[in-house]
């Protein structure tokens, strides 16, 4: 399970709405393993979508320099990069083949579906070790053990 603080969930949804109709992207910082065996995302680091403007409505890219900066920032705060978030403007919060082809193991891939400018759904996905597919990862709320967060992004 990926447990997000309400602030992180809200920040991801707001970023998706802000950058609509383009895709937004950024890092989720936190702890890969908490006491309950899950992972916690309690911070975000927004980065600019490095794709060309004419492609940004359906693609995102994070430059390696941004990755290095985020990783170092996380390390200084005693955190890890837990995952990557991005938005799917006017599409479901399910990963595409393109997402799969470019995915890394371990990280949580959080997708927020933004429909006509409003965040509607948030889901998290993890790459299987054999790279064959994504598996859905339940999203809960950090600080409220065992509580399952609602799927509707608007609940935040």
């Amino acid at each position: 399970m990926l447990k997000l603080t309400n602030e992180v969930r809200r920040a991801i949804c707001e970023a998706g709405e802000r950058d609509y109709p383009d895709e937004t992207c950024g890092f989720i910082l936190g702890r890969l393993q908490d006491d309950d065996g899950g992972r916690v995302g309690d911070g975000v680091r927004a980065v600019a979508n490095a794709r060309e403007p004419e492609e940004a409505h359906h693609r995102f890219k994070i430059e390696p320099e941004d990755f290095l900066r985020a990783e170092r920032e996380a390390a200084r705060a005693g955190k890890d990069i837990v995952g990557i978030y991005h938005s799917h403007p006017d599409h479901p919060a399910a990963p595409s083949d393109y997402d799969l082809d470019h995915a890394w193991p371990v990280y949580s891939y959080v997708i927020v579906a933004v429909e006509r400018g409003r965040a509607r759904e948030l889901a998290s996905w993890r790459l299987e070790d054999d790279r064959s597919r994504f598996a859905n990862e339940p999203v809960g709320t950090a600080g409220q053990a065992g509580e399952q967060a609602g799927e509707q992004a608007g609940e935040t």
């Binding site: 693609r59 995102f60 890219k61 390696p64 991005h86 995915a103």
Partner: peptide
């Protein structure tokens, strides 16, 4: 240093 290039995005097929 191995640095992940992070990319993705909604596909037309979706």
């Amino acid at each position: 240093t191995l640095v992940p290039a992070i990319a993705g995005g909604v596909a037309g097929a979706l």
